[in-house]
């Protein structure tokens, strides 16, 4: 029992450990590591908003970056302003037969959504919800599997908690364009490079971007270089970046990495 308590104790000590437990850690370092991971999992599951969170279909290129290996039912994700990435997240659940709702995005490009695999027959747009956006989002989340919303202004914490409860109860996933307290993960996009277009010739045909996911649980942001989209309108990891972590450390310039970490730090404090 005491061993277990010690293990829990030093789980919360990042970096420098107390000398008293150092001997214990040194003696049982090899044996305790799996149990540490196990306990971390347990803490995470106790902190999670829902005990049994099931995943909804997620595009494999992005799923690997997300905590838990995909978009979870009843969770909220916040997304940097990228319509293509939003459509990439909608495409897989839409093809699996769930309905998608888009609230407060009057400039939604339906043709792009259709070409990326979102089924327009199961897509509903509420371009201008006005002041009632929260009520509309909740009503749409009642009946749709995935809801995208761009909040026109901040809502009160009480209303947000009610919405989160409703999402958990209905098992809908909310994707927020912009920041959102209590979001499961924040997905952002950087280093976008277009190909196929030159100095006065060609046309846009494909794009490579770095997609970075930072989570509420802290830890390093995970990023990967993706085709968004590739010349065949598919989303796929870029071949040279088969190892996302290594890619991140090699290609990111250190300054940028620091700022990302700082971002996630301030983000954590906000939570």
């Amino acid at each position: 029992m005491s061993v277990a308590i010690d293990t829990i104790e030093h789980m919360f000590e990042y970096g420098d450990m107390a000398p008293a437990s150092a001997t214990l850690a040194a003696s049982s370092a090899v044996s305790s590591r799996p149990s540490v991971r196990e306990l971390q999992e347990r803490i995470r599951s106790m902190q999670a908003t829902k005990l049994d969170s099931r995943l909804i279909p997620t595009h494999p290129a992005i799923a690997g970056l997300l905590p838990g290996g995909g978009l979870k039912q009843g969770s909220t994700y916040s997304l940097d302003h990228s319509a293509t990435l939003m459509m990439a997240l909608l495409a897989a659940p839409s093809q699996a037969g769930s309905w998608c709702g888009v609230v407060g995005v009057p400039e939604f490009g339906a043709e792009a959504a259709s070409s990326f695999g979102v089924d327009l027959e199961r897509l509903v747009l509420v371009p201008n919800p006005g002041d009632q956006w929260l009520a509309v989002t909740a009503a749409i989340a009642d009946v749709m599997g995935v809801v995208v919303v761009r909040p026109p202004k901040r809502a009160s914490d009480g209303n947000l908690a009610r919405l989160a409860g409703r999402l958990r109860q209905r098992g809908s996933t909310l994707i927020v364009l912009g920041t959102w307290p209590q979001s499961e993960a924040m997905i952002s996009l950087s280093q976008s490079e277009w190909s196929g277009i030159g100095d006065g010739f060609g046309h846009l045909s494909a794009r490579q971007v770095t997609v970075t996911v930072s989570t509420r649980m802290g830890g390093r942001p995970r990023s990967a270089r993706l085709w968004l989209p590739d010349p065949e309108l598919q989303f796929a990891p870029v071949a040279i970046a088969s190892h996302p972590e290594r890619y991140g450390s090699e290609r990111h310039n250190p300054e940028r990495h620091d700022s990302e970490q700082q971002d996630s730090g301030s983000y954590l404090r906000a939570v």
Binding site: V124, L125, A139, I140, V143
Partner: peptide
């Protein structure tokens, strides 16, 4: 599920008006 979806969207329409909820068609 379509019945459920229709009822939910009709509710949103009763909040925002008939043109508040749209479906895109190519």
């Amino acid at each position: 599920p379509d019945e459920r979806v229709h009822n939910g969207l009709s509710r949103v329409q009763s909040m925002l008006g008939h043109d508040g909820v749209l479906v895109a068609v190519m």
